[in-house]
């Protein structure tokens, strides 16, 4: 995992995402989820490209069921983009870097 990706938990999601401000992409994943693992290198690449613009966080949905339920995560991987603590975009499934970048650009470009 890229050193530019932060692992978060139920206990830290509020402080790391909701109250942190700015753009934060949260990836809900699980150990058993093949597409989640395949998405890993794409998220690493995105984390490097968007350093300073969008923070990338990962949260294990099995170990942090409160957050998964709170944000109605129904399938994995699910990525939710928060801007200043508000959900702005939700992407599910294995997507290309281009799709992910387009979603981030739509909410972060000035």
């Amino acid at each position: 995992m890229s050193k530019h990706i932060d692992a978060i938990t139920d206990a830290t999601l509020d402080s790391e995402v909701i109250e942190a401000g700015g753009a934060v992409l949260v990836d809900f994943w699980a150990e058993w989820c093949g597409p989640c693992k395949a998405l890993g290198p794409v998220l690493d690449d995105i984390a490097d490209d968007y350093l300073g613009t969008v923070r990338i966080c990962k949260i294990n949905a099995d170990e942090n069921k409160v957050s998964a339920e709170r944000f109605s995560v129904r399938g994995l991987p699910t990525m939710i983009l928060f801007v200043d603590g508000v959900e702005r975009e939700r992407i599910t499934g294995l997507v290309s870097k281009t799709r992910l970048a387009a979603a981030l650009d739509a909410h972060t470009e000035v």
């Binding site: 290198p41 690449d45 290309s96 870097k97 799709r99």
Partner: peptide
Amino acid sequence: IEAATWDPLISRTA
């Protein structure tokens, strides 16, 4: 087509 819109030398997942 859209996945191929990066230079592999800059974007390693291209």
